[in-house]
Design a binder for these strands. Structure first.
Length: 820
DNA sequence: TTGAAG
DNA sequence: TAATACACTTCAA
């Protein structure tokens, strides 16, 4: 008889093993021991929805159901009639519990024959995910495990415990050990290919001070952290040993899903070396799907920072490309090592000595900045994982839609709701072609203005969802005669229940209130406080989910798709912002502009009293949790004719620029920088003269070819495969002419060169322009890039194209005159 | 001049 | 495997 054990630990990964017949929770104790907890108590289940009139015969059928399968007979372990709701509609269902998760797919064809059968739900969810939906296993947060110790032979762990009870405590693990890694390959002939090009070194670094570079060519006076091995093959043996020794809780890389880990895997396979890194002693598992890949280690979450940044963080970043260098620069203020071009790496290897030492430094530096990124971002991924309720490995690869879906699925039980099925592809197709009206954008007053006040609605769409109870479960309810009625949407209105809170608005309300509490606490904290980064990560993760709910209603593959809900949200949004505009104009404020949830007003002076009163008045009339907030005061701003394009300068002389060429990556740096300088001259210095001078100088520089090539490069993404283009734009033409292999999704940096023909014919990829020593087309950059960008700004302040040219001409004449 | 594609 | 609105370019018909 084995006595009961109680163990506190922090989970980092969860899966299901059919061999064990158990859910496996992998984690770490506070004294750095590895733990595997086996839970055999959770049985999989699904629901069959039936006609309530056939209840009895349905139960009888299911009670007697028995399917013969190899050697055994399979039947439901338990059946139970339940009254549930499916997207708000009361239904009768039978919950069918099975012994083994695999029984679901064996039984389901026979379930169809149930008398009164209508549908089946919750059968399409993998067992471990279902477990996580119904059992709280917060990643990186303390669990108290009751159970008995069992044989640990099969695992690379200190404790293996079969549990009968798990309690969650809420305390976060403070010593999460993150290991970053990066590889370099020997690829003299272009893109690295794992079938030909060896790995020459691997670097690793952890957040608790461990550093190592493994390489198989010796050089003098190596860095302390270098470990020489005899051959490429030995790299893999040394790497496996190192991982086993340092026991990381999380392994991170940058693009490691698609590059580093598959490459390591494929090279090791060549030498028939197994990479048994999993806590269950299984090998690194690489699944390739076309150009995509997912690399998993059982028990140790592999987080590819690139995936998370691309899917979730990317839209909030300023950077135009998501390569490690740009992302690191923006998020942690660090760059990659300069001076080594990745195409030259093979030369550093061949030359050896000091060059090789430099390459080692470079390799280590990449691991270092990947690690720093992970230190900064892993709190967010962990928080997101805890809110969504799925493993770190999965959540770090999810997009917005999946995050919301799993978050909602986790919370259906307390509302007695079932998880609806995924839509059939036929329905998805129909949904894709449906469109609806979006937000309202007020036509701007062009010109230069002073004393600008900006107000915006705090979380407009989430607060509308909550305040008007917008949910597929409350749409067209039977209980309210009136309910919340939307403004007119193409001659009709929708009504939402006023009595019973919908399941999604209720969850959103809880999230928003939770975030408000966190923000209150953060206000009184210093950035250096221990919990600051955790709380701000939590706030960010909550915001991510809350802001995605509206989009999820309109998302064709959504399980809770509701186009009427999405239409209602934007309709109310339009009404509220238009009301504010109307009332502001009635109160004689000068409304300059408004977009979706914000309004900009120009005052005669910087006295904000009047406008504070105005906001208070608006807020008194707003329902529920809706609120108009003061966003900021800007001494000067420029609005151009077009919507969604303006620039504001705050008291600190910082510019906020929206939509203008300055912020667009598909414009050359020379055009963008010049436009920025012109805006600074006008908004901060208040001088048209200075602005004209700047333009004149830039034109001269272009004419004299003093502008470096990188400043005339234009960045455009290849959205399709090159061969799929019917219309050949300049970026496609440049990519086609290049010897480099460009694939869908690649960014093309091209330059328009001197010569004859169309723009496309004159466009070449920047590296080709460099290599072939071609010259950029000065006229193109002056007339098609620089001038249009600044002309828009000048025409806003009442200087026409011709007038601007006149001013420039005079200046240029004078300039030439001086020169002579 | 207009629509497609970016 | 979140949404729509909007401006403006180049290319090709």
């Amino acid at each position: 008889m084995v006595s009961e054990t109680i163990l506190e630990f922090y989970p980092f990964d969860v899966d299901y093993s059919s061999n064990e017949g158990a859910i496996r929770i992998f984690g770490v104790t506070s004294d750095d021991k590895r733990v595997v907890v086996l839970d055999k108590n959770f049985k999989n289940y699904f629901y069959v929805i039936i006609n309530p009139k056939k209840e009895e015969s349905a139960v009888e059928y299911l009670e007697n159901l028995e399917v013969a399968s190899e050697e055994t007979k399979i039947k439901p372990l338990d059946i139970k009639i339940v009254k549930k709701k499916l997207v708000g509609n009361p239904i009768t269902a039978i919950k069918i519990v099975v012994e083994n998760p695999s029984d679901v797919s064996i039984l389901k064809d026979y379930i169809k024959e149930t008398p009164g059968y209508i549908d089946r739900v919750e059968e399409d969810i993998p067992h471990y995910k279902k477990y996580l939906l119904r059992n709280k296993v917060p990643m990186g947060s303390k669990l108290i495990c009751h159970g008995k110790k069992v044989d640990a032979m099969k695992y690379n762990a200190d404790y293996v415990i079969e549990t009968n009870k798990l309690e969650s405590d809420g305390e976060n693990f403070e010593k999460t050990r993150i290991m970053a890694m990066d590889i370099e390959t020997y690829n003299p002939k272009g893109n690295p290919s794992s079938s030909k090009d060896p790995i020459i070194m691997i670097s690793m670094q952890t957040n608790d001070g461990f550093k190592k570079v493994i390489t198989w060519k010796q050089f003098e006076n190596p860095q302390k952290y270098v470990k020489f091995v005899d051959s490429e093959m030995d790299i893999f043996l040394e790497l496996s040993k190192t991982i086993e020794k340092i026991k990381p809780d999380i392994i991170v890389g940058y693009n490691s899903d698609v590059f580093d880990l598959p490459y390591i895997f494929e090279r090791a396979e060549k030498y028939k070396i197994k990479l048994a890194w999993g806590l269950d002693k299984t090998n690194l598992n690489v699944r390739r799907r076309g150009t995509n890949a997912v690399s998993k280690i059982n028990g140790i979450p592999h987080v590819d920072m690139f995936q998370f940044i691309r899917n979730i963080l990317g839209p909030t970043l300023k950077t135009e490309t998501l390569d490690l260098n740009s992302v690191a620069k923006e998020i942690i203020g660090e760059k990659k090592k300069e001076g080594i071009n990745w195409t030259d790496i093979h030369m550093y290897w061949d030359e050896g000595g000091e060059k090789l030492k430099k390459l080692v430094e470079y390799n280590m530096h990449d691991s270092k900045i990947t690690l720093k990124l992970a230190e900064k971002l892993s709190p967010i991924v962990l928080e997101l994982s805890r809110i969504v309720g799925q493993p770190l490995f999965n959540v770090s690869r999810m997009r917005y839609g999946q995050c919301v879906e799993w978050f909602l699925a986790k919370n259906t039980d307390e509302f007695n709701e079932l998880i609806p099925k995924k839509p059939y592809s036929k329905n998805v197709g129909e949904r894709f072609v449906r469109s609806y009206e979006g937000a309202y954008v007020h036509k701007p007053k062009p010109g230069l203005f002073e004393n600008i006040v900006v107000y915006d609605f705090r979380s407009l769409y989430p607060s509308i969802i909550v305040s008007h109870n917008i949910c597929p479960t409350t749409l067209f309810c039977d209980c309210c005669k009136k309910g919340y009625e939307t403004p007119k949407i193409k001659d009709k209105t929708y009504t939402f229940c006023e009595k019973e809170k919908g399941f999604i608005p209720k969850l959103l309300e809880d999230l928003i209130k939770r975030r408000m509490r966190i923000k209150e606490i953060l206000k009184d904290m210093k950035k250096s406080d221990a919990d600051y980064s955790i709380l701000s990560a939590r706030s960010y993760a909550i915001k991510t989910i809350a802001n995605s709910a509206y989009g999820f209603y309109a998302f064709p593959r959504s399980r809770w798709y509701c186009i009427e809900c999405a239409e209602s949200i934007t309709a109310w949004g339009r009404k509220y912002i238009k009301d504010v505009i109307e009332k502001a104009e009635k109160d004689k404020f000068n409304v300059l502009y408004s977009d979706t949830d914000s309004i900009m007003i120009s005052l005669e002076d910087s006295n904000l009293d009047k406008i504070e009163k105005f906001a208070k008045k608006i807020n008194k009339e707003l329902p529920g949790m809706m609120e108009l907030e003061f966003e900021g005061f800007y001494p000067r701003g420029i609005f151009v004719e077009a919507k969604k394009r303006y620039a504001l300068a705050n008291k600190k002389n910082e510019l906020t620029i929206k939509g203008l060429e300055v912020v667009r990556r598909d414009w050359s740096s020379i055009a963008r920088n010049t436009q920025r300088e012109v805006l600074e001259a006008l908004l901060i210095k208040g001088s048209t003269e200075k602005a004209v001078d700047i333009i004149r100088n830039r034109i001269e520089q272009l004419k004299n070819r003093e502008v470096p090539l990188k400043d005339v490069a234009i960045l455009t993404q290849l959205k399709r495969r090159i061969e799929d283009y019917s219309s050949i734009g300049p970026h496609v033409a440049a990519a086609k002419k290049s010897k480099q292999n460009f694939e869908r999704g690649h960014m093309i940096s091209y330059v328009v060169t001197e010569g004859v023909g169309s723009i496309s014919e004159k466009s070449y990829v920047i590296t080709d322009v460099e290599n072939k020593d071609m010259k950029y087309d000065s006229d193109y950059y002056i007339n098609n890039q620089l001038l249009p960008a600044v002309e828009r700004i000048f025409s806003a302040i009442g200087v026409s194209k011709d007038e601007l040219k006149g001013k420039l001409q005079k200046k240029l004449d004078g300039f030439f005159g001086d020169k002579k």
